[in-house]
């Protein structure tokens, strides 16, 4: 008891110090450790998620780049094919147009020739007819004084026959 008295042990003071520490323990636990550990955990999960998302984004980007290259390749192939097809089609169309133009030109020429021939024949016929008429008129005037009416008729008929046969 003497030792306890010398060390100043006092149950009330001892209890007060215990209660005091328990209060501090509660405050520290509730308002310091918990928020700090929560913040650390939250930060850790945020960083983890960020890294995961960055990795996913990198993978997606790689995929997109590969897809882009593939699409460009396909587009180049398609464009080349389209150009070749267009060239072939253009050549085909120009060949057809040339052929068509040639055919139409020939047809026009033939039509023109036929028309010219027809018109020439018609003109010749008209000319022959007018010449005959002139010849008949000339004969009628010249033979009128030399031959009788009967002879005149025979000469004219003979002349007409000759003209028509020539």
């Amino acid at each position: 008891m003497e030792i306890i008295k010398n060390f100043g042990l006092n149950p009330v003071l001892l209890g007060a110090q215990i209660v005091n520490f328990l209060i501090i323990l509660f405050i520290l636990k509730k308002f310091l450790y918990k928020p700090v550990l929560n913040t650390l955990q939250k930060r850790q999960s945020t960083i983890k998620n960020g890294l995961k998302q960055a990795e996913e984004a990198r993978e997606k980007l790689e995929k997109v780049v590969i897809e882009e290259k593939e699409i460009l390749k396909q587009a180049q192939l398609q464009s080349r094919k389209i150009i070749e097809d267009a060239k072939e089609e253009a050549l085909d169309v120009s060949r057809k147009i040339n052929e068509n133009a040639k055919t139409q030109t020939e047809k026009l020429l033939n039509d023109a020739r036929e028309q010219i021939a027809r018109e020439t024949i018609g003109a010749e016929k008209k000319l022959a007819l007018s010449t005959s008429k002139l010849a008949v008129a000339f004969l009628e005037k010249t033979v009128k004084e030399l031959f009788s009416a009967k002879e005149q008729g025979e000469v004219i008929a003979h002349a007409l026959k000759k003209i028509n046969t020539s």
């Binding site: 100043g8 001892l14 110090q17 215990i18 520490f21």
Partner: peptide, 9 residues
């Protein structure tokens, strides 16, 4: 009083 209190806790 303090150190004994802490040890008891």
């Amino acid at each position: 009083n303090m150190t004994l209190g802490l040890a008891l806790i």
